[in-house]
Design a protein around this nucleic acid. Structure first.
Lengths: 117, 117
DNA sequence: ATAATATATCAGTATATCCTTATATAAGGA
DNA sequence: TCCTTATATAAGGATATACTGATATATTAT
């Protein structure tokens, strides 16, 4: 699942998350996305490339502008993977906790008392 | 939000996602986690450190073993951030689409016809 | 004590990432 | 046509990552 690699790596950068957050408000051109940051235009363009490759945004051509917007599918894919963990944590975890709660008191004496020095 | 950086970066590696998937089935020790991979034990230990720092797993001490398990909170945090995008994409996007559908036909003539050469 | 097992840490290396400046390309307007 | 604006790409440097093999540490068994 190399696509998830790309997607999660894309989300690992605060600038890129901020860009996505901005795009959540609606389309924006590259220069509009540059403004709020103390970064150069090439830097933002490179971030946008990363986001596009990750399937998290799409771009239209409008004259010399390239308005960007969020891509449904990309977010959905990530979401899908996370839902696996989410389910486990929501449903099974409590039961697992009980199991462990049972195990812990019975835990083999760990001899911490006679540690050297 | 430096924590989200760490969390998403942790998820960007397929080995680490596989480890999490394994832990979704229940606790496992380091050596148990090493087995399924063609990686050395130090490699897995390093991945576990990354996952722990990201708040995605926790570890108990049990004799010489360090059983690992998923950490609810970490997943929740990521989930929380993603829900922002999810909401936008689920609720507002269609409306945005309509707006853009309106704009597009009115889009300024882009003169693609007279491109050089 | 000594050895064995489970795990962590260190040193080194290859590759990737994030930024910058400089430059290329493409469209729109004078 | 020439100039400007919007964006992309290239080159280079600093830092981070993902491994490996070697070694350190802690716990348990003998």
């Amino acid at each position: 699942m190399e696509n998830l690699d790309t997607a999660f790596r894309a989300l690992a950068d605060p600038t890129r998350r901020a860009i996505l957050a901005r795009l959540a408000l609606g389309e924006a051109t590259v220069m509009e996305l540059v403004k709020p940051f103390e970064l150069t235009q090439p830097a933002i363009s490179q971030h946008l490339k990363v986001l596009e490759n990750a399937g998290l945004i799409t771009r239209r051509v409008e004259g010399t502008k390239r308005p960007c917007r969020l891509a449904k599918e990309g977010v959905a894919e990530i979401d899908h993977w996370l839902s696996m963990l989410r389910k486990v944590l929501a449903k099974n975890y409590d039961r697992l906790d009980e199991i462990l709660a049972d195990v812990k008191p019975a835990e083999k004496e760990t001899k911490k008392g006679r540690r050297k020095k």
